[in-house]
Design a protein around this nucleic acid. Structure first.
Lengths: 223, 223
DNA sequence: GGTGACATCGGTCTGTGGGCGGATGGCGGA
DNA sequence: TCCGCCATCCGCCCACAGACCGATGTCACC
């Protein structure tokens, strides 16, 4: 919270490869104003330490055995909400980017960033500013593009009228067969719509889609 | 809305058995102040007519071919919210009662009610007052019993602490295996909890449970 | 000491959900 | 005109969800 000016920014490094941890750590320690509290090799350790040390910034790898970075990020934001998470990974596919952001990551860097950028991202993160790797930024913008007014931070992509209709029914607890009955279409078609909705919203199943609809205000308590 | 004093109460009868329809109709027509607009044999017809005629009260059978009464009630309340639905059926099992009430039925009568009670229930319904058959009322009270403060019209039964914990995770979009991981218990145990939650909330699957949690305010948009 | 609610775990089974790979026709913009 | 989005439909397939059966230990309450 109070990292204005001269105060030290504390960092926690999470990566299952020791080489990466040590490399990043060695570099960050040369940076004035940055202090690496610890580097750990698993999400579980990260959670434990984050709860204890409450680092300003967490550098998080995504692909790790046992608990992946997305899950670790989600839970970390629960136990230590004020820690800012920077994803540092080599993947720039949608299936990594969007879940990570939705899990609460602030910034998303690819491992080919040069050192000064990394240090800059850490300092920015401590101030709550996000940094997206250009390639990632491109994807995010592309997703945002085509969305209508997008109050604040809406769905990432626009749903068609029909899809919205299906989403509302999902968010009302309807099964595929019920939706088919109500819309007077085949269940296969419903499944197609549902699949499209899931991928557009970047969620994994209908329950998450329903939650999304409620959280995002598509649904209201009085319907 | 404006059925004070002398105005006529309009009624729609929905039942797949012609005999029942005619019997009920014949009786209601002897009642002063009541006017039967129509009697229909299917949910689909009921929806069409209700949208057109906007009856004050709809007498709804539950068990019907094609669209059952619960589904018909749900959709009827969408197309004609001011119509009050009285369920008139011969079943008093939970699996009929609770879905019907949740679908928007106001009153729930068993077919052994005597005529004067039926007429009374119709008049009460027109004023927005509910009537539950004694046997049904007993079940509902029994369900409500043990519930804590139950602001307004809460869950029908109290969930245990652990179940609430699981419900929150469901309402966050978590799968059984994720829940198991997070709570550090086996997936079998999670399934047990989920099953108990579903039956206590009288819903059919996890998505409906999630919707319930959001609708009922267990979940908030900022978690 | 019994009784019941709760949390934990197990097995088996079935239906549904959802992915993947197609196909069609309509319709509007380049 | 051709292309791409949308809505509709089809089949195959497998993992998950949830029902139903069971069990254990703990704990509070009477």
């Amino acid at each position: 919270m109070a990292d204005m000016g001269g105060e030290t920014i504390t960092v926690l490094i999470v990566d299952d490869h020791a080489v990466v941890r040590q490399g990043v750590r060695a570099f960050l320690e040369t940076q004035p104003g940055l202090s690496v509290l610890a580097d750990v090799g698993s999400g579980a350790e990260a959670l434990r330490l984050a709860a204890e040390l409450v680092p300003d910034v967490v550098l998080m790898d995504l692909v790790m055995p046992e608990m992946d970075g997305v899950e670790a990020t989600r839970r970390l934001k629960q136990v230590s909400p004020r820690s800012q998470v920077i994803v540092l990974t080599s993947y720039h596919q949608d299936e990594h980017i969007f879940p990570a952001i939705r899990a609460g990551a602030l910034s998303y860097l690819l491992k080919d960033v040069d050192s000064s950028e990394l240090a800059g991202a850490v300092r920015k993160a401590a101030r709550g500013e996000a940094v997206l790797h250009p390639r990632v930024a491109a994807r995010v913008v592309q997703e945002l593009h085509g969305a209508r007014q997008s109050a604040a931070f809406n769905p990432f992509t626009e749903l068609s009228e029909r899809e919205l209709e299906v989403l509302r029914l999902i968010a009302d607890g309807a099964s595929n067969s019920e939706i088919a009955e109500r819309l007077v279409i085949s269940e296969k078609t419903v499944k197609s719509h549902v699949s499209n909705i899931l991928s557009k919203l970047h969620v994994l199943d209908r329950t998450q889609a329903a939650v999304f609809a409620w959280r995002e205000g598509v649904m209201r308590r009085d319907s």
